[in-house]
Design a protein around this nucleic acid. Structure first.
Lengths: 115, 115
DNA sequence: GTGCATACTTTAATTAAGGAAAGCAAGCCT
DNA sequence: AGGCTTGCTTTCCTTAATTAAAGTATGCAC
């Protein structure tokens, strides 16, 4: 019986979007549903394993919806649930902050690994 | 020359607050400056190594300020910079989202580790 | 039967993150 | 001298996250 005693809701929210690829997934699903392969190409260099694992978690967390057309070759479409959209809304200011300070942050991150 | 090609600002923002203890640090510094030991006790079971590492990164990222009183025994006060405060502002909606769905998220997280 | 397309799955290996514990500096106080 | 305080460092170890690469299933077109 592990307790996840989140103190501020921030921890809870970050537990949901904290995966390495989840922000990108949210971003790409924010305005339109996408098939798996489409999403994968959009994100770039994700491995299948990672992308699917994160999609599964997001699905289990009620953030994304998975629609299987049961066709062959397979066709599966991912989209945000209603809850996922509220999350996306809540993320907008943070996203804006990041956009505003992006070049700055990029420099900091590259310095962090090569000091 | 590694490129951190952040696509949406979300990635940039999460690179800054993505550490395990950073959200808590932000949270505790949001309304008042705090000395190191004070902060440590407030957070609970962090190791010195972790807390200091994260504080250093946040300092290098321009999010927190470190004020060394140069006394003995040592007295060092941490607080948010102006930039840090804008970050804290941008985090509020996300924090609210997390607070709103906290019990839900806690359940999901515990299921994730014991399926 | 061969090959293709698409959404996964699996395995093995590497890398990164985190934790525990002990130690250090440097003045003050007894 | 010995102990206390506090901020910080160091070392070693364990666990979790991520990657790369190959494989599976299934129906259709040829």
């Amino acid at each position: 019986m592990t307790t996840y005693g989140f103190i501020c809701g921030l921890d809870a929210a970050l537990a949901v979007i904290g995966g390495k690829w989840k922000p990108l997934i949210l971003f790409h699903l924010a305005h339109q549903a996408r098939r798996y392969g489409d999403l994968r190409r959009a994100i770039g260099n994700v491995s299948d394993k990672m992308l699917i694992q994160q999609l599964k978690e997001l699905e289990a967390d009620g953030i994304v919806d998975r629609l299987d057309y049961k066709e062959i070759p397979p066709k599966v479409e991912y989209s945000l649930t209603a809850l996922g959209q509220t999350l996306a809304e809540a993320l907008k200011p943070l996203c804006a902050w990041g956009t505003e300070h992006m070049t700055e942050v990029e420099e900091l991150m590259s310095r962090r690994s090569v000091p």
